[in-house]
Amino acid sequence: MAKANRHPETRDVQPRVLLAFGGGLLLFIALAAIGVKLIFNTAPTWLPLPTDTILEGPGLQAAPRQDLTAFRAEEDRQLKTLGWVDRNAGIARIPIDDAMWAVVSHGLPDWSRPTAAATEPDCALLTAAVPRAPQAQNCQQQRGAGR
């Protein structure tokens, strides 16, 4: 076997180009940091507080465990008693045990069947809520044609 002439690779990375790229990258990062600092000035603009001022902390709960216990007791009371949620709208609450018993004994309502209120829209209610809506005008026309 004949020995081949050995010489360095000529297609390798040139060190000057690599150093120039690294220097350019560092320069870009430095200029970007300076630009961000100038655009988004994050220095505080308020005046320092006088040293004789006593700082009070935020208004925290004095007794958080007792507050949580009282809150949960109020929730439990509401779940176990009858009461009005909105008397004018006719929305009431019933004890949760009674509600579960009603579902067990009567089952869930069939939501796929239209109710009487859904088949006969209340035009007065719709007109009062949104008087100039096209739905209100259509409702009144349908009610007038159905009579």
Rank of each mutant, 00 (worst) to 15 (best):
V104M: 12
Q14K: 12
I94V: 12
R87Y: 02
R143W: 10
K37L: 13
P134I: 01
P121W: 02
R113A: 15
G83S: 10
C139T: 07
A102Q: 12
A117V: 12
T51I: 11
L108G: 06
T53D: 04
V36R: 14
L49P: 13
D97V: 14
T45Y: 04
T45P: 03
W84T: 05
L68F: 03
T42L: 14
P134R: 09
T10E: 11
V36W: 15
F40R: 12
A117W: 08
A43F: 09
E9I: 01
I29C: 12
M100L: 15
R147C: 01
L26H: 00
L49C: 01
L60R: 11
T53F: 01
P58Q: 06
R6I: 14
A116T: 09
Q61R: 15
Q135H: 01
A116M: 05
V17S: 05
P109N: 00
R93P: 06
R77Y: 01
A20W: 03
P64I: 05
S112K: 13
D110A: 05
E75K: 04
A89C: 00
K3Q: 10
R72N: 13
P58Y: 07
R147K: 07
E56W: 05
A4D: 09
H106L: 05
F28H: 00
L60S: 04
P131Q: 12
A30D: 03
A30F: 11
A20Y: 00
Q140C: 05
E74V: 09
I54S: 12
V85A: 11
P121C: 07
A33K: 01
R132W: 06
L47Y: 06
D110Y: 01
A118R: 11
G146H: 11
A73F: 03
T10A: 08
P8M: 15
L55P: 14
N88L: 03
